[in-house]
């Protein structure tokens, strides 16, 4: 094979390059890149950065953005902890109905968000089964409060951490755990010092996916949230409201603000991941 340092593609007899690459890039452009460019164009060139800032820098928008990211963060942290625990239970423990439970974890992927939304509202509303019980027992209101948003987002993000961590736990070599035990570590110490570090990169991947999903979640949240401006109004809903008022520039500004914050967050998580991988490699 001749070395061609500046070739875009190394030579191969495999057919279908033109067709597959062409179909891929055309679809990618039409479905993803051009619409994305339309959004950024409208925001930065049609409307302008200063004008966008002015539209975003208002209490109602800030509180919607803060709510969306805070609730997503809380729900994803819960899902991170619970997801690792559930993955551990599903891989290591035996109990009746385990395979069905394992399959059911993917329910939030398969169940449409609007269905999840009205279902969660039905049981957590003040007259719902859990809603009434929690209200009577603790005076706790779930639906139409921020707590309801957390629950909807926990539902939506539930499978991500489980499904990224599960294969890693299956791959764990039990000999390292045995070695740790023979060296005198308690089980808890083995878990926190030997097992957990190997799960960290996968768990963070799942966390990032859950976070990205729940920041932008709309369908399951709007039913249970109550949608009170400044209190339980999430950022995606505010975008919809702006659109219904035909305030396209306002909608675009909030959308770009959301995208910038979530991409920054994903970048930070990626960096943490790279660092934790490096530390693992060094040990």
């Amino acid at each position: 094979m001749t070395l061609r340092p500046f070739a875009l593609r190394s030579p191969t007899p495999m057919p279908g390059w033109g067709l597959s690459f062409g179909v891929m890039m055309t679809t990618l452009s039409v479905i993803v890149l051009v619409p994305m460019a339309a959004l950024l164009w409208r925001g930065f060139i049609g409307f302008g950065p200063a004008e966008m800032w002015e539209v975003v820098n208002r209490p109602r928008v800030w509180s919607a953005l803060a709510l969306s990211f805070r609730a997503a963060l809380i729900a994803s942290v819960f899902n991170l902890v619970f997801g690792v625990a559930l993955a551990w239970v599903l891989v290591r423990y035996r109990f009746p109905g385990k395979r069905i439970i394992d399959a059911a974890v993917d329910l939030p992927f398969a169940l449409p968000t609007a269905v999840a939304g009205i279902a969660l509202t039905a049981i957590y509303a003040p007259n719902g089964f859990f809603g009434a019980a929690l209200d009577q027992a603790f005076g706790l209101k779930v639906a139409y409060t921020e707590l309801g948003i957390w629950i909807a987002l926990v539902f939506v993000g539930l499978p991500f951490v489980v499904r990224t961590v599960q294969p890693v736990i299956e791959e764990i070599d039990r000999e390292t755990e045995e070695a740790s035990a023979t060296l005198g570590a308690t089980r808890l110490r083995t878990l926190t010092h030997v097992v957990l570090p190997t799960l960290t990169p996968a768990a963070l991947t799942g966390f990032a996916l859950a976070l990205a999903r729940s920041v932008g979640e709309y369908g399951s949240v709007i039913f249970i949230a109550g949608n009170l401006p400044n209190v339980t109004e999430i950022a995606p809903l505010l975008i919809v409201i702006r659109l219904e008022e035909f305030d396209y520039d306002g909608a675009v500004a909030i959308a770009i603000a959301m995208l910038s914050i979530s991409f920054t967050m994903l970048l930070v998580i990626n960096l943490i991941q790279i660092m934790s991988r490096r530390r693992m490699g060094a040990v």
Binding site: M25, V32, V34, L209, Y218, L237, I239, V240, V252, M258
Partner: peptide
């Protein structure tokens, strides 16, 4: 880069996705 772009829709809010098409074809 192409792989990242293919994954992009995972991290875009559905509402923002809808907004893009409204801007383009509205």
């Amino acid at each position: 880069l192409v792989l990242t772009l293919i994954d992009l829709p995972f991290s875009v809010s559905p509402v923002v996705a809808g907004l893009m098409f409204v801007l383009l074809f509205g």
